[in-house]
Design a binder for these strands. Structure first.
Lengths: 227, 227
DNA sequence: CCAAAAGTGTTGTGACTACACCCATGT
DNA sequence: ACATGGGTGTAGTCACAACACTTTTGG
């Protein structure tokens, strides 16, 4: 009885105009113990010349879903694939963007694991890494992007506190001190070494690789992998 | 309300078709110690006759923002205002809804505090309260609504565990046993009385009202208010 | 042998739980 | 007086943090 066959049946009721739907990206990395966020200098109005999140318009002819759309935007604007994007939230309203009578944005976040080379792509003048904590309070950013960054940081921190590491969060192989340092940078606080290792152990999310890695000029550390 | 002021300076680039944007509601209540979710029997294809989340199409001529749009849909479909709606997530894709070539949904959740009388409104045949936990695994619901319900439950539980009670979560005045019972129903687990009260105390989110309330035929309980 | 970082054991503290107990009211 | 649920005190347990310590490498 539920046989959706006719794909172009008229919607029950009048056809209403739809808003402009954009996809924006909050891309993080950890550099020198600091959580940084990737911002683009805007080439167009509004907020021309200011810094804002890289993003693009949803293309219903190209994107199979919101998430794959976010991946496409990453490719076009940043020239790289993003590991494990996660949705932050959606915002929208009539006064959001002067280029359209009604505009909304779906925001995704991702963490770059290694030195995935990010390079400016289509319609991006320049890409800049800013301290994420500072950017989340920087009123000079375009739109309400500083608030979106704050929401993205909150979500990322919750995930790290729960030790939910997705593939792509770290390089293929890494040491526990490296992982702990990364977590500390994201959380903005020091973690206890004993507790951290015990929780990792109990979570059972890592497995060791029977090989070692030099750590400068000292005792080498055990190498691990996710899952 | 907001007159679309034709700020149409041609968007830099071609104008792309936009998806159908819907707003769906996950409305909870607690009845007899069980967390329940409100579902509507669908009058139209797809999934005609099945149960699904009440929702409606975003109207850029009526809605100032996504959130106020969710409120409007609540009024139209349920005949009531929803206290403190919170966004769950947005989902969308090309194959989502046969009525449109590309459709997306922004999902909001809310908890009805008292017996706010919900009644079927425009284009709603019948409203039903189901056990929320069961509904989150009920494959017979329309679309992927059982997954959306699961996400909404997870978000609600996280909020309750953090003791983040918004106005409207409870009636104006209530007792601690009532609040604890409500939390237990939402979490689906018993809470320790001592710990619960100590955490409430430390959080400082409630204030007592110098008045009492009878609790059946026994010792009356202290009455509290939020904030 | 020394420095420095990796990794482990030990102890104290604080939060949660279980349990017991007192309090206030209606019958 | 008693039953019933509201409210509080006490002791045991568990997780975490601080600290000390051992281990392993390069110089």
């Amino acid at each position: 009885m539920s046989s959706p066959q006719r794909n172009h049946e008229a919607p029950a009721g009048p056809i209403h105009p739809m808003p402009l739907v954009r996809l924006d990206l909050v891309v993080f990395r950890v550099e020198a113990g600091i959580l940084q966020v990737l911002l683009a200098k805007r080439q167009q109005a509004p907020f021309k010349g200011r810094l804002g999140l890289p993003g693009g318009v949803l293309r219903i002819d190209l994107d199979a879903s919101l998430e794959t759309g976010a991946q496409r935007v990453a490719h076009e604007r940043l020239g790289t694939a993003l590991p494990q994007v996660r949705q932050v939230l959606a915002v929208g309203g009539a006064q959001r963007d002067p280029r359209a009578p009604w505009a909304m944005t779906v925001v995704y976040r991702a963490v770059l694991s290694a030195q995935l080379p990010v390079q400016a792509g289509k319609r991006v003048q320049e890409l800049v890494w800013l301290d994420a904590q500072q950017a989340s309070q920087d009123e000079s950013l375009a739109f309400d992007h500083e608030q979106l960054i704050g929401q993205a940081i909150a979500g990322l921190r919750a995930e790290v506190e729960a030790l939910q590491f997705r593939p792509g969060f770290m390089p293929e192989e890494f040491t526990l001190p490296q992982l702990q340092a990364r977590c500390e940078a994201i959380l903005g606080a020091a973690l206890n070494k004993v507790t951290f290792r015990r929780r990792i152990e109990e979570a059972g999310i890592l497995k060791e690789v029977p090989g070692k890695l030099v750590g400068g000029a000292h005792r080498p550390a055990q190498v691990w992998r996710i899952a």
